[in-house]
Design a protein around this nucleic acid. Structure first.
Lengths: 187, 187
DNA sequence: GTCTATATCTTGATAGAC
DNA sequence: GTCTATCAAGATATAGAC
């Protein structure tokens, strides 16, 4: 089992990155929150690039797991799409945190190449999962107006992430709900 | 006429903010780019909060002007919506810069209250303008499937901003085009 | 694994000369 | 309006003791 400290650091770092962006949090912040000195963090994550890579790895795995859970517990396209929207809604934390890959990409030039690749891989994975949902919704006729599932998937991911930003501006969930209302009305 | 230096600073700062985020650029960067010392910048913009407020003011006015131009030169809902999509597409700069309010909001906790209010005001303005486009498109029957223009407007703004993020990740325009393809197919 | 101590650099901002 | 000089605070990162 990896040390609890490492997990605690990842937890705190993920929240910090999603709330304040990559350039908006420091090792000092993490040290304060976890209760160790900032030099000690370098034992677990030598550089901030290492930390953010670990962050993206964990986030990718977690979201992929959530998608799998949704597929396992919902049998129609519309139910899966609704669950996916709810997943992003929950990730908002009342407008206080963005999706990790959204908050990171705004600081693109501060990121390592490795992290940028991980962000791209994450997005590819999500588009594939969402595309499968639309494909099912087209077949079982539970999502209206689907002509091209991959296009719908790319639009949906953009919409969900954009709705996150909208809600972050107002720091509430209402704005998110308003932005996804049209999509929801289709399923 | 305000000094050329002030305009040059705003130009450079806007590009920097949109490319690297609020926490990702410094007075030193601007000084280098404009060719003066960083202390001199404080004469024009005493604090970074003042600078970002000026940035938002100018951005708000510029985008509102672009919207008015679109309304003046296109007479149908579908034409106006297409022009609006093109406006955001151009703002991408081949995936190198985001919309200013997107890049700022990711660093929400670093912003002054004043700037946050300006971001909200900008979004309200854009939603109203886009809503009017959908209303026209509904009346003149050039945009398909419109039931509630304000909802469509909020979804469209979220989609356009989300598509910006998508394209920023890949640093190209293709991803933007893919994300807005479904919307485009409606007009 | 965590600590103290330190190095080095960058940050936004101010004072005061020209 | 722009400069030099300077500041205090913060950043990431390293060395070496415990």
């Amino acid at each position: 089992m990896p040390s609890d400290t490492k997990t605690a650091l990842l937890d705190v770092a993920e929240h910090a990155a999603r709330a304040r962006g990559f350039d908006g949090f420091s090792y000092a912040d993490l040290a304060d929150a976890v209760g160790i000195r900032k030099a000690s963090i370098h034992y677990h994550f030598p550089t901030k690039a290492d930390l953010s890579a670990a962050l993206m790895d964990r986030y990718h795995a977690a979201l992929e797991g959530e998608c799998r859970k949704i597929e396992a517990s919902h049998d129609t396209g519309s139910k899966r799409l609704r669950a996916l929207i709810q997943l992003y809604r929950d990730a908002l934390n009342d407008g206080k945190t963005l999706c990790l890959c959204v908050s990171l990409i705004s600081s693109r030039e501060s990121l390592s190449e490795e992290v940028i690749e991980k962000i791209k891989a994450f997005r590819t994975m999500m588009v594939q999962r969402i595309s499968a949902v639309f494909e099912l919704g087209q077949k079982d006729n539970t999502i209206s107006g689907v002509t091209d599932p991959p296009s719908e998937a790319r639009a949906t991911l953009a919409l969900l992430e954009g709705a996150h930003l909208t809600a972050r501006a107002e720091e509430n969930t209402i704005t998110f709900d308003e932005a996804v209302a049209v999509l929801k009305s289709r399923c």
